[in-house]
Simulated assay, not measured.
Amino acid sequence: MSYKSNSELPKTVRENLPEHGQDIYREAFNSAWEEYKEPSERRGDTTREEAAHKVAWSAVKKVYEKDSKGNWVKK
C-alpha cells in the first residue's frame, strides 16, 4: 500500500503538512513499507502499516516542527 502521490496520503497528513513535508512523509512511508515487509523486521506485534507511519512521522520531525499555533514549520 505505498503512496504514488501526495493526494493519496491520509487526510490528516495532507491537511497538516506543507507540500515538502508531505513529500518527506510519502518517501519515508514507501521506503519503510518495503523495509518492514516481514514481521520479523518489526518490533512486537506492530503491523507493517503502523511501522511505516511511525517511520514517516519520524522523518518529517527531523525537518519540521510545530510552531506555537500548531502549524508544521521548517526547523
Score class of each variant (00 low, 15 high):
residue 49 E to F: 10
residue 13 V to M: 01
residue 71 N to L: 07
residue 43 R to M: 11
residue 13 V to S: 00
residue 12 T to M: 10
residue 17 L to G: 07
residue 16 N to K: 15
residue 71 N to Y: 05
residue 22 Q to M: 09
residue 36 Y to K: 15
residue 12 T to C: 05
residue 31 S to H: 12
residue 2 S to Y: 04
residue 59 A to Q: 14
residue 4 K to G: 14
residue 27 E to Q: 15
residue 41 E to R: 14
residue 18 P to A: 02
residue 72 W to N: 04
residue 61 K to C: 10
residue 38 E to V: 06
residue 2 S to Q: 08
residue 29 F to V: 00
residue 23 D to K: 08
residue 28 A to I: 05
residue 34 E to G: 12
residue 27 E to R: 15
residue 59 A to K: 15
residue 24 I to Y: 02
residue 12 T to G: 04
residue 60 V to N: 09
residue 73 V to C: 03
residue 26 R to I: 07
residue 32 A to S: 02
residue 36 Y to N: 12
residue 3 Y to S: 02
residue 65 E to S: 12
residue 36 Y to V: 13
residue 9 L to C: 09
residue 37 K to H: 15
residue 10 P to M: 01
residue 67 D to C: 05
residue 38 E to G: 00
residue 25 Y to N: 06
residue 40 S to Y: 12
residue 37 K to S: 15
residue 73 V to P: 03
residue 14 R to A: 01
residue 68 S to A: 14
residue 45 D to E: 08
residue 40 S to P: 01
residue 33 W to H: 06
residue 72 W to D: 08
residue 9 L to S: 07
residue 2 S to C: 04
residue 38 E to L: 13
residue 36 Y to W: 15
residue 65 E to R: 11
residue 23 D to I: 09
residue 60 V to A: 11
residue 16 N to S: 15
residue 42 R to N: 04
residue 41 E to N: 08
residue 23 D to N: 07
residue 5 S to W: 03
residue 48 R to N: 07
residue 42 R to M: 04
residue 40 S to I: 14
residue 54 K to R: 11
residue 61 K to L: 11
residue 61 K to G: 06
residue 31 S to G: 12
residue 64 Y to K: 03
residue 49 E to H: 09
residue 51 A to C: 11
residue 23 D to R: 06
residue 57 W to Q: 03
residue 66 K to D: 07
residue 13 V to F: 01
residue 62 K to E: 11
residue 22 Q to N: 04
residue 44 G to C: 08
residue 69 K to N: 13
residue 61 K to T: 12
residue 20 H to S: 09
residue 39 P to N: 03
residue 67 D to G: 05
residue 15 E to A: 11
residue 70 G to D: 06
residue 55 V to H: 06
residue 19 E to K: 13
residue 30 N to A: 02
residue 25 Y to T: 11
residue 57 W to S: 00
residue 25 Y to R: 04
residue 40 S to A: 15
residue 44 G to N: 08
residue 63 V to F: 11
residue 50 E to H: 05
residue 8 E to V: 03
residue 19 E to M: 09
residue 75 K to P: 03
residue 68 S to R: 14
residue 69 K to M: 10
residue 39 P to L: 02
residue 14 R to Q: 06
residue 73 V to E: 07
residue 24 I to W: 01
residue 56 A to C: 03
residue 43 R to L: 12
residue 4 K to I: 05
residue 66 K to C: 08
residue 52 A to H: 01
residue 18 P to C: 02
residue 68 S to D: 13
residue 1 M to Y: 12
residue 65 E to W: 03
residue 39 P to A: 03
residue 69 K to W: 14
residue 70 G to T: 07
residue 41 E to D: 14
residue 14 R to N: 01
residue 3 Y to H: 02
residue 57 W to A: 00
residue 53 H to F: 14
residue 33 W to P: 01
residue 63 V to R: 13
residue 1 M to C: 12
residue 25 Y to G: 05
residue 23 D to V: 06
residue 67 D to W: 10
residue 61 K to F: 09
residue 65 E to D: 10
residue 44 G to M: 05
residue 60 V to E: 13
residue 8 E to W: 02
residue 71 N to R: 13
residue 7 S to V: 14
